[in-house]
Design a protein around this nucleic acid. Structure first.
Lengths: 343, 343
DNA sequence: ACGAGTATGGAAAACGTTGCTCAGCATAGA
DNA sequence: TCTATGCTGAGCAACGTTTTCCATACTCGT
């Protein structure tokens, strides 16, 4: 009924060669003549043979790359995945993902799981683990960390320049005539994370850009969290200020959705009463009724770079690590306008 | 530098027992005295041993469950994943996902990849493969298919009752006073898929409900695709009718986003000029500026059921298959109102 | 014709686990 | 006392690959 799986032995017998020979052909390894390659490939075709990744993992590679993402609901991560998938398209590698739910314990469990499964490499997207832990993972398996600043001798990093991304937003709003520009950030207390996490960089970029425009005294930050609820709470706080800010820069698009809630509750709208900008250029930001001004992080490119670095590291684990930093771009849409332009 | 991984042999030596004994403890297998269990567990702790899933896969299980999803961007699938993760929380199983990009070839490649990696079971979410292929996968590995009607002796299914979900929408719109209610569906030509795919069921449900309300002559369907572009094209087509429909039922939330585009282009808005409903209750449907009336598919429950069925099937591959069907619920928001209620 | 060097293909030993078989040793029953 | 019966735990052969040699069979220059 459930027939035994075809193995390399079957292929070897069918082609009249040794299993060594078949293995060589499979891996494009040196020491196989064209005729033999042809014979073996024919046998593989005929029998419909597929190598067992489990068995391969015992000695060599599994041709599996693990991607850890914090959250399935943030479409920005899908862009990164697309980039990874595209770069890995021509290769034999398969991508398997796991979602950690943004908590440290779950993240640790999943990285362990990936290591246990002998993955050839892992891409950690916006991980929350301590640098120590990241190091330890990276010493066990080739690792690329995406979306987290700071660098290590053991893993490569790909980041977006969050500092200048925030500046793009502030510049844009100032250009429209705004002065009272407030910001909603993700509350961070841990010292290490304050240095490494993108949200902290965005807040720094906001502060710096405000000062550069001579608006240091207008700096106003609500520290909540990068969620819709965080956006709602943060916006309520900011809207209660006297005088009210004329523009709100939310640290992430999803946060801007919460700002919409607070605006509606206060009987206000964007951009008529308050201009609103997000960050990430997630898919929904472009939807007609939302039409959110935001910052495009080039997730696709980030993924592609991450995959490239990972392949290079798998190829040579000793090579020095590199830090790739990409530049964000402002995407102007309907939620930002000159102050007081409303009815 | 890169230290050799701790193996079961190290643990056995450290605890002064055989590898067999360690293996038994690991798997809670029969034939291990409490003292021995204690000794072994202590050794495992001390050495920080973790079993290699690759090696396990060669003989026994890998404790890995694969989930294939067509699209990372549809947050509805995240709900399903949550349900699966929750149900699997207490067990030793790990969930790894792969996204197929909704194309038949990619889907096939990924199911193969999961089989190659000796996964203990797979959950296929809204697969596009032919029933023949699904059967063949299911005969190789325990399988649960989510979101696809039809049944098989080899795999279990979990579906939403799309037929009555569509009726919920039509009932709601008729209740508001609409008569000219149009529908945008995903064009399907393949006979098998017409029977099994949710989109076809939704269209059938729409037709049936319209007739049940004596509105059979008002049935109007644009067949495009379940994408934003498909929604735009479909809505353009429907809006050019004379007289214009007063309500559009889009077969999926993402389709409704395209309808927004077409409405804006025609200088119309929802619900003032045209009522609009979607399907799926994706995350963005609830965002303030969108506030889309839609149908909640209970993704969380679907995932939980799928995980339950899969565990049962892994436990006993011979058991008869079951088909679980869940009931959808209407979520009324701001895009539907009585016809002619606009300015 | 001969030796050195170079392709080519194979035998066999890993890799880390599980499952089968069996030995040892109590304990209980006769 | 002797045998039957459980129970524990050990030894060893899988599982399906890759990898490290090693043995050939060529090729080429002398």
């Amino acid at each position: 009924m459930v027939s035994r799986r075809i193995t390399i032995v079957d292929v070897a017998r069918h082609a009249g060669v040794s299993t060594t020979a078949v293995s060589k052909v499979l891996r494009n390894a040196y020491g196989a003549s064209p005729e033999m390659q042809a014979k073996v490939r024919a046998a593989i075709q005929e029998l419909g043979y597929r190598p067992s990744a489990a068995a391969r993992g015992l000695r060599g590679q599994t041709y599996t790359i693990g991607v850890l993402l914090p959250d399935l609901r943030n479409p920005f991560f899908a862009d990164i995945l697309d980039g990874i998938a595209e770069r890995l398209g021509g290769t034999d590698y398969q991508v398997l993902m796991a979602s950690s739910g943004n908590d440290q314990q779950g993240e640790a469990r999943l990285t362990e799981a990936m290591i246990d499964r002998s993955m050839d490499g892992v891409v950690l997207i916006a991980p929350v683990a301590s640098p120590r832990r990241l190091q330890s993972v990276a010493r066990t398996v080739p690792t690329v960390v995406v979306g987290r600043h700071g660098h290590s001798p053991d893993y490569d990093t790909v980041t977006d320049d969050d500092f200048s991304g925030a500046a793009l937003v502030v510049d844009h709003l100032v250009g429209l005539g705004h002065r009272r520009i407030a910001h909603i950030e993700h509350l961070e207390t841990d010292a290490v994370r304050l240095r490494e996490m993108p949200n902290a960089r965005r807040a720094d970029g906001y502060r710096h850009a405000m000062r550069a425009h001579g608006l240091g005294d207008q700096i106003d930050i609500a520290a909540t969290s990068y969620t819709r609820e965080g956006g709602y709470a943060g916006a309520r706080e900011l809207l209660s200020r006297e005088p009210r800010p004329t523009a709100i820069f939310a640290g992430a698009d999803i946060v801007a959705m919460g700002v919409f809630d607070a605006l509606a509750e206060a009987g206000l709208s964007a951009p008529a009463d308050v201009s609103l900008a997000g960050y990430d250029d997630t898919t929904f930001a472009s939807f007609g009724p939302i039409s959110l001004t935001t910052v495009d992080q080039a997730g696709h490119q980030m993924g592609g770079q991450a995959a490239r670095l990972l392949l290079e590291r798998i190829g040579d684990r000793g090579r020095p690590t590199s830090q790739v930093r990409l530049s964000p771009a402002l995407v102007t849409r309907g939620t930002t306008a000159a102050p007081g332009a409303g009815p």
